[in-house]
């Protein structure tokens, strides 16, 4: 299991290849990549991501450990960036390795649902109109109820 919190970009192909080489017992590897999306008006100049150094790593590790235990994963990877990102940049990725695809898919969704509202990150949008903190969505909190 690997958890990385970093400002620098990550190489998706390299991380995926390294993860996929890991375990012989896995029949399924799922990866998800989060990308900075422009707003509907096309005016997003940057996304700033603040986090809580120390707690972030701890929270992500706990979430990943839960996923490994619950879905009987062979391995899990979480990379999440912070700092200033522009539209099109990769913010984060998760990867899961399981014996069968259902567990790998479900574990990736579980990881995403939990890290959206249980890992201490806060997004701020910088647009032509000004700057604003992104509000948490009720949907994100509700998404945890299915687990």
């Amino acid at each position: 299991m690997r958890v990385l919190v970093q400002e620098a970009p990550f190489d998706l192909a390299e991380e995926t290849a390294r993860f996929a080489k890991g375990e012989g017992g896995s029949g399924a590897i799922v990866t998800f990549t989060g990308v900075v999306r422009d707003n509907d008006a096309g005016t997003l100049s940057a996304m700033e991501i603040e986090h809580y150094p120390g707690m972030t790593e701890k929270a992500l590790r706990e979430i990943a450990q839960q996923a490994v235990a619950r879905f009987d994963l062979q391995d899990a990877l979480v990379i999440h960036r912070h700092g200033r990102l522009v539209p099109g940049e990769q913010i984060m990725m998760v990867a899961t390795a399981a014996r069968h695809r259902r567990s790998a898919f479900e574990a990736a969704e579980f990881l995403m649902d939990y890290l959206k509202s249980r890992a201490p990150f806060w997004k701020r949008e910088i647009t032509a109109e000004g700057e604003a903190w992104v509000a948490a969505k009720d949907d994100d909190e509700a998404a945890l109820e299915r687990w």
Binding site: K116, F121, A135, A136
Partner: peptide, 29 residues
């Protein structure tokens, strides 16, 4: 709120806590 880097509730005890953090609902991912 987080007490010593663990999310908790407002009625949580502080006994010996070293670090208390306040923040809005998180928006990761």
């Amino acid at each position: 709120v987080a007490v010593d880097q663990e999310l908790t509730d407002f009625d949580a005890p502080l006994n010996g806590a070293r670090e208390v953090a306040f923040f809005p609902p998180m928006t990761g991912g």
